[in-house]
Design a protein around this nucleic acid. Structure first.
Lengths: 212, 212
DNA sequence: AAAAAACTTGACCGATTGGTCAAAGCGCCC
DNA sequence: GGGCGCTTTGACCAATCGGTCAAGTTTTTT
């Protein structure tokens, strides 16, 4: 009925299927350890078919990393829509912890990419991340100048939030092992999130309202 | 003069040379992306010679990961030799930040290994890390019970310290990019360390004495 | 219904992988 | 100085890698 759209949907669904398989494989084996054959097996498709949609391994990988990057930046909205540091930083931590729980594989692919020197997405780092970071650092500085929180270097605070939240994705295997072999349950996740939020906000001298 | 010892030293020095090259290559490319040929090139030795000292790629990798694990645990001494949370937790953070700066490649290999499900050192995790973590959590709980710091779940505090300090190793490339392309200098490292320490200790309600 | 476009896939390719091996080299002791 | 054990290394191997391709199938357009 909608020729162009129907075809587009067909293609989009298959690409999605391939991308999900690839994300899993790249997260579990790294770029070098991942093989197109394994991605094909997980997607339950012939290898040649994957090469029809994504011509090279790098192209497939790049699509995944840049997608994660976008999801990453969405959590920033908590920052912009906030009226002060408690809501802004607290909301940002919450959002990042949610992503950490629901998008652990994406976080791992990102971590692996950056750890190896960001050979594929260095341009993203330089063009987008730098601007984003500078913008958020300015907001934090505004709050400091207004006496709404203690004076710290905003950059190192951001690194701390990134590190702490993403740790629950990247090291989920270690956390699970230390939890007796079972992943954190809902209660433990809530407690982890609250602990992270509580220590950082308290450490910044920000008084917290209600909300556990 | 000392035949056995001389031979032993010979072997030990060459193994050290290979291990250093391998650590660098594994850190930069991951286990899957690393090749024995590249390790051989970095060590400036024929590939077959490396296989004389380390029969398989896994054996070489295992030696590196377990070595890092040992270095990791040494930082724990700050915990045991302390008289209270300010000295114990603060000293632990300092020690981990120092390792993060001087041993970034080791941290990356460790992170990569854990991220991929710890296929090689799962036994270390289960035998050593669990015990170590439980022991340190007990110490923290003691301080909480004595009213020396705020009540938080010790585990999530440890995860926070690990995440924050190791982030400066694992994501050093990202941090360098955000720093305008140059690595953090001495002053910036000191400030980063102080910020991490300050936020966490303050967040735990621990009053800090002197020492910047 | 037929032509055109989009999609699927088994077979295949050169390059590279981790690892082997036998022959040569080396240092050391009797 | 001759022999012995440790070390070195180029050549080599089967397996696997990312990627190609042409022949076939399905879907869409006319």
């Amino acid at each position: 009925m909608k020729p162009a759209t129907r075809t587009s949907n067909r293609r989009r669904e298959k690409e999605k299927r391939i991308l999900e398989a690839a994300e899993k494989v790249f997260a579990e084996a790294g770029f070098g350890g991942a093989t197109m054959q394994l991605i094909a097996d997980v997607a339950d498709l012939p290898k040649a078919n994957i090469h029809y949609y994504f011509q090279t391994k790098e192209e497939l990988y790049r699509r995944i990393v840049s997608h994660i990057f976008d999801v990453w930046l969405e959590a920033a909205q908590a920052f912009d829509e906030s009226s002060g540091p408690a809501e802004g930083i607290g909301g940002y931590i919450d959002a990042k912890m949610e992503i950490a729980r629901r998008h652990p594989m994406g976080s791992k692919v990102w971590a692996s990419e950056v750890m190896h020197g960001a050979p594929v997405i260095q341009d993203y780092l330089e063009e987008v991340l730098i601007d984003w970071t500078n913008g958020r650092a300015e907001v934090i500085q505004t709050w400091i100048d207004a006496g709404q929180m203690r004076a710290i270097e905003p950059r190192y605070l951001l690194y701390m939030i990134w590190a702490t939240t993403q740790h629950y994705s990247d090291f989920d295997h270690q956390i699970t092992t230390l939890n007796g072999g079972t992943p954190l349950d809902d209660t433990q996740w809530a407690q982890a999130k609250h602990t992270v939020r509580d220590i950082i906000l308290t450490g910044l001298g920000i008084s917290q309202d209600s909300q556990a």
